[in-house]
Amino acid sequence: MKKSTLVLLVVSVAALMLGVFTVHADDVFRVAMVMPSKINDYSFSQSMYEALMKLGETFPEGKFELQKSEDMFNVADAREAIRDYADMGFDLVVAHGSQYGTSLQEIAPDYPETAFAWGNGTDFYGQPNITAYQARAEQGGYVLGEIAAKFTNGAKLGVCGPVESGDAKTYIDGFKVGAKKGGSEVSVTFTSSFSDVSAMAAAAEGHMDEGAVLLTGTSQSIPGAVSVVKERNGHWIGAQWDTIPLAENNVLASLVYDWTPILDDILSKMTDGVLGGSAYDLTFADGGLKIVWNTENIEIDPELIALADELAEKIVAGEIDPLAE
């Protein structure tokens, strides 16, 4: 009995080391990331970049390389970048945008040795080297919506949306449902652009003129809205990445995408020689969806934070459907 356990242990350790060895064949784990905006956009792109940086810290000095292509809003350019990174022998290529899925479907079969990851998406196209990942933004939206309603005692809330698509839309839908449950009225605007900061600012002013005291929104254009909130002493709730640095005294909380658990899993599978073939959901359940509270600068009732945890648990348990009106 004891002997067999020992053998098993030795074998598994050996296998693990072998696996590690294959991944680090040339010693350096090379990751490339292609994204539609920038690594410091306070939203979607930044969330993944920071997670990759964090992943890099788990490697010994000099054994991790991270390259990036920013502003790849044009899919044709992104496709070329993805292909080029695979060509250059990167171990993992992260195509961080829903619009890149179909390109991967085309490229991945040509590079069976390379692992690809893409999101937000749910489909790995039956490829053994594609991993799809998706943020269940509506979960966070629901919780923050109800929290916003409670925090403002049922006052008016405003949502500054970029375009009615992707996780921006699901976050906003969840927020609306949650806010309504919490007893608040919500007004929603879309500027039809991910980057138009002045339209975002004007939308925020409109919301506040009509009596909204707390706003939320997504995309890299939200700094426009946050600056209005700051000027008028309102409150802001961020999504996708920590927006507290944008306005320390006004951002109540941020929904943060922490891709670390998913990346860790992808990496450990790669060590086992599995390069993809699965899809992940970023949820409250796996700790990937996080709420960062600005307790340092704003007085937040601890009961509110407790309520948020409770709501998240209920969503995890399936007791709350964040999209059911």
Binding site: G158, S187, F190, T191, S192, A199, A202, D209, E210
Partner: peptide, 21 residues
């Protein structure tokens, strides 16, 4: 006109945002 279309959205008047813009 620009301020007006944004305010229409805030007030919840149903018009596709892209058309409004």
């Amino acid at each position: 006109v620009n301020a007006f279309q944004l305010r229409m959205q805030v007030l919840g008047i149903e018009i596709p945002s892209d058309i409004a813009m």
